[in-house]
Computed example of a mutant assay.
Amino acid sequence: MKIRQIQAFLALAEDLHFRKAAEKLGVTQPALTLAMQALEDEIGVPLLLRDRHETRLSFAGEIFRADIAEMLAASEQATERVRRASTGVLNYLNIGFISTATTARFMPRLISEFRRIHPQVELGLQNRVNVDLLAMIESAALDVAFVRLPLVPPHQVEIAGVYKERHVLLLPADHPLARQTSIRARDLQHAPFIMYSRRNAPGYHDLIMRSLNTNGINPTIAQEVGEMYTLVALVAAGLGVAVAPTSARNYNLPGVVLVEANWLPPAEIGLAFRKDDTRPASRLFIDLTLRSRRQQQADSSDPVPSD
């Protein structure tokens, strides 16, 4: 499969008209038809459905368009990065992050500081879940990533803890315990819990489960979620209680109360990066993050509001 074939298919998928797509590509209509036939023969399934009146994508064609568009974008990005690297300077940094790295506010401040100090470095930002971020660091699809700890990295990936804050309990505003300033573990014996999915962050899920079990709670799980915002939203909807980093308050969702529970472990975010990444942009960002670690942790010691 050639890049030109992919580009031709995407142009045709956009216009669904052979003549218009051929003009856009600067080729003849018969040449475009032959290229599409060759592509379908190579894949082994029809991508286009054609009759006298219209051209449309088959079901397989719809799936192929979605996947191949992402692949082409990645290919073009990789090509651009190689071109920059060939000049001896690669001023591009691809940063991944979990959503709570932004609600904790240390990451936006860090990004702003990095841009001020190094305006020549172009930044790309991607919000993903923990397991995806780790895989993307390993494959070099990302340069650095802010991940939720604990996390066991592959041998070629290093993770440095960069931010700590407290865990708190989230309760619906009308919950009987919502007016308390602190909650004991035994008060939650029969409470339904909203839990962060183990599939998305196995280490973090296990940390919370161990903490609950150690304190005599075998939680009834009402719902598992893949995003922290969804977890907070379901608490607001009254579906159960949850454990979350105190920065979850910055989602500012009404109907949720944050209550202290000093028996919960701290919440921690780490910076993941490849050990063999010696690119200047990566090292500059890693160094700045590690230097900022103490101040970030001090900022997390703000008192928890009651609502």
Rank of each mutant, 00 (worst) to 15 (best):
255 G>I: 06
214 T>F: 12
20 K>R: 15
37 Q>D: 11
102 T>Q: 13
279 R>H: 06
286 I>F: 00
303 P>L: 15
11 A>F: 03
129 V>W: 06
33 T>A: 07
295 Q>I: 09
26 G>Y: 09
239 L>Q: 14
192 P>V: 12
173 A>W: 00
76 E>A: 10
3 I>A: 08
269 I>A: 01
148 R>P: 02
100 T>D: 07
305 P>G: 01
32 L>M: 04
119 P>D: 03
207 L>M: 13
177 L>K: 06
301 S>F: 06
20 K>I: 05
144 V>H: 02
185 A>S: 15
40 E>N: 08
181 T>K: 12
213 N>H: 13
212 L>M: 06
193 F>E: 04
88 G>R: 02
7 Q>H: 11
140 A>G: 04
195 M>H: 14
38 A>V: 10
180 Q>D: 10
12 L>P: 04
219 P>Y: 13
125 L>T: 05
185 A>L: 09
55 T>F: 07
92 Y>P: 00
262 N>M: 06
169 L>P: 00
93 L>E: 01
26 G>P: 02
289 T>I: 01
6 I>F: 08
173 A>K: 09
130 N>R: 03
51 D>S: 13
284 L>M: 12
238 G>A: 07
127 N>F: 14
39 L>I: 11
181 T>A: 15
256 V>I: 12
17 H>F: 14
190 H>V: 09
25 L>E: 04
269 I>G: 01
98 I>R: 02
132 D>T: 15
27 V>E: 04
273 F>V: 00
40 E>S: 08
14 E>M: 00
226 G>F: 12
106 F>S: 01
53 H>G: 13
302 D>R: 09
58 S>R: 05
188 L>M: 07
194 I>F: 08
182 S>Y: 03
45 V>I: 15
108 P>T: 11
257 V>G: 02
294 R>K: 01
289 T>E: 03
211 S>L: 11
9 F>L: 10
142 L>W: 10
184 R>C: 09
76 E>W: 14
221 I>Q: 07
282 S>I: 00
298 A>L: 02
95 I>E: 03
226 G>P: 05
288 L>Q: 01
276 D>C: 10
161 G>R: 00
229 Y>D: 05
91 N>I: 03
216 G>K: 06
106 F>A: 09
212 L>Q: 04
281 A>T: 02
176 P>V: 04
254 P>V: 06
33 T>L: 13
163 Y>I: 00
263 W>V: 00
287 D>K: 03
120 Q>D: 15
160 A>E: 11
149 L>F: 02
273 F>E: 00
37 Q>N: 13
211 S>P: 05
62 E>P: 08
120 Q>T: 07
213 N>C: 06
68 I>C: 12
150 P>M: 11
295 Q>F: 04
258 L>K: 00
27 V>P: 06
114 F>Q: 03
236 A>L: 04
